[in-house]
Design a protein around this nucleic acid. Structure first.
Length: 509
RNA sequence: AGCGGCGUAGCUCAGGUGGUUAGAGCACACGGCUCAUAAUCGUGGUGUCGCGGGUUCGACUCCCGCCGCCGCUACCA
């Protein structure tokens, strides 16, 4: 039996869920669903990152305690993922006790191993921001946010000896060419490492909303060094329920390109320092751009882009959950940036879902109703359509395997096209009821059965609804995949047409 | 500035260790069909493969230069 452990980043609770976080989460979900379908033992983790100065500030602005604020915002993520039919097995919050413990345990191990030392951080500091800047980020020597002079500030910090891991990291990249994918992102991480690594400060004395440093109670850990460890907390790092050995060798971190450095440089080095293997794989995705720009809160609700209009809840409300999931998975190659627009969602919806998939199911069911007395016939053993379907299964399978959902769906849709062409070829609506028509419709139903399994990772509800209409039960985790090629549509089942699965959208939104 | 990437049909993008007529989807046009959600099926591309030069029998594919866009360059989720 194979195992598959996939994670999203834990989302920072200064912000509400938006299309960008939904994009990452839906992709991770589809991967998890694919692996469950294959029968792999699967663990899918997401959650929220709740420490740090910014959270404390945001809470204060809203007249709430940090804990109240994080409770509230974290719940919004839980709610959004429920709406998107996200099948996470666990939802971690960094303010949970299990996490505090594992952070302290993990970093204490690094400390004991001699990779953490006390030092002084010196740099330009803006009092208003309560934050350090690098010299090149200053505007005429002033704070880029406040435009006021910065002061040279010193702070006592605990430092992680990142510099000690440069060679080991390079060796790891060398011996694990697929550690970070796609390759362009791998190169980015590599060139960063090659340019020389400096030690990094990992604690703060200036704030208190964080995980206390066990060996020095005046410090809390800087939020990143707390956050990354969530991936280990969830599998019981350092506790009695330690499942490290089972899951960690099969770990996949799905992340946005803005946090490559943390996941592909800091994190493996920290793991090495703590005496464990680095994560197995970091899969990087690009950004969804709106009007060529990264999604961000600063777009607000009054500019040309109104974030409210593209909030996950709004989209689900307008297009339906599976259509949104399909769009996010299909429209953009994982790893590239993609342009997001309501117009393109509408186009995908009408072309791929209404015209192709929905209409295929509708026309097949309609013909079976009128020509086969609403009883679905069995397929012929070796039709051209079935042969094509089997090739498609292989292509789709390897695309999912390689973290290429857009290709998996593109290939799946060629089968839908082939099924439509199959109907045109034989024109069963012109035939008299009988053996010939049964063969044509049986082959079509068999194609639909296979399609229903192949779309399951992307559109689980639609898959089950399609199967219900042709008399089949819901897709089961392992049974349907194992028998996808060998079993066929059994025939003799009641077929019902039902309402359009994806009613066409007339006007561009 | 350094390092990296990108620039291919109206749009989104594939592709090529250099070799006959450069690909897909969408959009568009025409034809077929009328079972189906005015859906579907078939057919249709005179594109300087960013610009200039070089290597070569031959370059869109390799090399050099240039232009344009983007990413990373250390404490920013």
């Amino acid at each position: 039996m194979q195992r598959f452990y996939i994670t999203t980043p834990i989302y920072y609770v200064t912000d509400a869920p938006h299309v960008g976080t939904a994009y990452c989460t839906v992709n991770a979900d589809a991967m998890a669903r694919w692996h469950r379908l294959r029968g792999d033992e699967t663990l899918f983790l997401t959650g929220t990152d709740e420490h740090g100065q910014k959270v404390a500030d945001t809470a204060a602005k809203n007249n709430l305690s940090p804990q109240e604020w994080t409770d509230r915002t974290s719940a919004r993520f839980v709610e959004a993922w429920k709406l998107l039919n996200i099948s996470n097995d666990d939802f971690i919050r960094t303010t949970e006790e299990r996490h505090t413990k594992s952070v302290q345990s993990f970093l204490s191990t690094i400390y004991d191993n001699g990779f953490i030392y006390k030092g002084t951080y010196v740099g330009p500091y803006c009092v208003d921001c309560e934050d350090y800047y690098t010299a090149e980020n200053l505007l005429d020597g002033n704070c880029p946010v406040h435009g006021r002079p910065v002061i040279e500030m010193e702070e006592e910090n605990w430092f992680f000896r990142l510099s000690a891991f440069q060679d080991r990291l390079l060796a790891h990249f060398e011996s694990h060419p697929d550690f970070t994918t796609p390759e362009t992102k791998r190169n980015e991480a590599l060139s960063f490492i090659r340019s020389g690594l400096r030690d990094i400060s990992i604690t703060r004395t200036s704030i208190s909303w964080g995980v206390p440093v066990p060996w020095d109670d005046r410090h809390v850990f800087y939020v990143w060094y707390d956050a990354l460890i969530n991936y280990l907390t969830a599998i019981g790092y350092g506790t009695e329920k330690d499942e490290m050995a089972q899951w960690w060798p099969h770990s996949h971190h799905l992340i946005g390109k803005e946090i490559i450095r943390f996941h592909s440089v800091w994190w493996p080095a920290m793991c090495m320092a703590a005496g464990i293997e680095p994560p197995h794989h970091v899969q990087v995705h690009g950004w969804l751009l709106v009007g060529g720009q990264k999604l961000s809160k600063s777009m607000g609700n009054d500019g040309p882009v109104r974030l409210g209009e593209i909030a996950p809840a709004t989209l689900v409300d307008e297009f339906g959950v599976d259509a949104v999931r399909y769009y996010l998975l299909r429209n953009t190659a994982l790893g590239s940036d993609g342009e997001f627009s309501i117009e393109s969602v509408t186009a995908r919806y009408n072309t791929d879902l209404a015209n192709m998939l929905g209409n295929l199911v509708a026309r097949v069911c309609a013909v079976v109703n009128t020509k086969c007395a609403s009883v679905g016939p069995a397929p012929s053993p070796d039709s051209e359509l079935l042969q094509f379907a089997h090739v498609t299964i292989d292509e789709v399978s390897s695309a999912w395997e390689n973290f290429e959902p857009h290709i998996a769906l593109e290939k799946t849709w060629t089968l839908i096209g082939a099924a439509n062409a199959h109907l045109e070829n034989f024109a069963p609506w012109k035939m008299e009821p009988g053996e010939a028509i049964d063969r044509v419709m049986g082959d079509a139903l068999e194609a639909i059965r296979i399609i229903s399994v192949l779309i399951t990772p992307a559109m689980p509800d639609t898959a089950d609804e399609i199967r219900r209409r042709i008399g089949l039960g819901a897709v089961t985790a392992q049974g349907d995949w194992n028998t996808l090629r060998t079993a066929t549509y059994p025939g003799g089942l009641a077929v019902q047409k039902g309402e359009p699965l994806f009613p066409r959208i007339r006007s561009a939104a």
